[in-house]
Amino acid sequence: MFHVDAFTDTLYKGNPAAVVLLEDEWLPEWQMQKIAFENNLSETAFVKSLDDERHFGIRWFTPTVEVPLCGHATLASAFVLFSIHKDLNQIIFDTMQVGQLIVVRGDDGCFVMDFPNRMPKETIDTIPEALLKGLNFAPQKVLRNEQAYFVIYDDEQKVRESDPDLKQLIKLIPYCVIVTAPSNYADYDFVSRFFAPDHGIAEDPVTGSAHAGLAPYWAEVLGKSKLSAYQVSARGGKLFCEVKTERVFIAGNAVLFSGGFVYA
């Protein structure tokens, strides 16, 4: 098992993920869930080799549930596999719910992930009471996709100062909550934060999967297909996104914190 900080090139920043390499078969689901609970990180990824050296299966577990898609743990898994298989430039992950995910080793040290476009298309006219009660700033607009409610603000400071009532947000199951705004600084196009109390995660430090929806939204608003993003959690993380019609390419760095063995 490896502990990797994803979407950063600096230790103790970004989003930490555990990557468990399996020798042959998937462990029983209860055991994978127990390991993820023991790790107590936003996600633990389980990876097993498939039919060739660049083809792997991947599954992701928070401390409490298995999730259909996770960006930072995919990035962390690719980082580990590229470190082991130094001749590879591309890795293909098979998933249970979102098809194949391809990760390419970039020339600049970044790893580029090919994700489905999850543009939030549904504008919420009647905003759920739990969401309004859970936010300390009134939203400018609220949208939704299959993963989360997207709370749109007009100023980055509202995202940074968000202090949601998680007891209210947990009532929004099965949806998480993303707060986002255009960046006040030239280095980034937009900022965000991600809350998933129903998944056992009060606030996720950096959420790659959320940017499969955030990047298409801001690409349309800002009129550009290539964007830089910063998730303004306490740890913080940098993401680079390119939006296509059906896919979103999300890139970032990663750094190894530790490695060892699971004796469960």
Rank of each mutant, 00 (worst) to 15 (best):
F7D: 02
I127P: 13
Q147T: 15
G14D: 06
E23S: 12
L21A: 09
H85R: 14
A212R: 03
A229S: 08
T245R: 14
R59P: 04
D187P: 12
G200D: 04
A138C: 11
F93V: 10
E161G: 15
L135K: 09
L227R: 02
I91N: 01
D163T: 15
E242K: 15
E203C: 04
Q100W: 10
F194N: 04
L88S: 10
P128C: 13
F261K: 15
S77T: 11
D204Q: 06
R235W: 04
G109T: 03
I178S: 06
P120F: 02
P28L: 10
H3P: 04
D154V: 06
V4H: 04
A215I: 03
G14V: 04
I92P: 08
R144P: 06
G213E: 05
F249P: 07
E129F: 11
F150D: 08
I102V: 13
F150K: 08
L143P: 06
G259T: 15
K121A: 11
I201H: 00
A212M: 11
L135H: 12
S192T: 09
N253S: 15
F56K: 05
G200M: 00
L169S: 06
L222W: 08
V80N: 04
F115N: 12
Y188V: 06
T8Q: 09
F261L: 13
K13E: 11
V4Y: 01
P139Y: 01
Y217F: 09
A18E: 01
S49Y: 12
L101H: 05
A78R: 12
E38K: 11
G99I: 06
V112L: 13
L101Q: 02
F56D: 02
E29T: 15
A73C: 05
D5T: 03
E246W: 07
A45C: 10
E156M: 07
F115K: 01
D24C: 09
N89T: 13
F56V: 09
Y175E: 03
W60H: 05
K34T: 07
P128W: 11
K171A: 08
P216S: 08
F46E: 00
V67P: 02
E66R: 05
C241L: 14
P139F: 00
V177I: 03
I250C: 07
Q90W: 10
R105L: 10
D5K: 00
V177C: 03
K167D: 10
L22W: 09
A138S: 15
A181M: 05
T44P: 03
A36K: 00
Y185D: 15
L214C: 02
T10F: 09
T10D: 07
M32D: 00
V262A: 13
E122N: 10
D114I: 14
G236D: 09
C241H: 01
V67S: 08
P16S: 11
F61D: 02
V243G: 00
Y175V: 02
D108R: 03
N89Q: 11
Q147D: 12
L27S: 10
T10A: 14
L81M: 10
D9A: 12
F257N: 07
G259R: 15
A219E: 02
P174C: 10
Q31F: 03
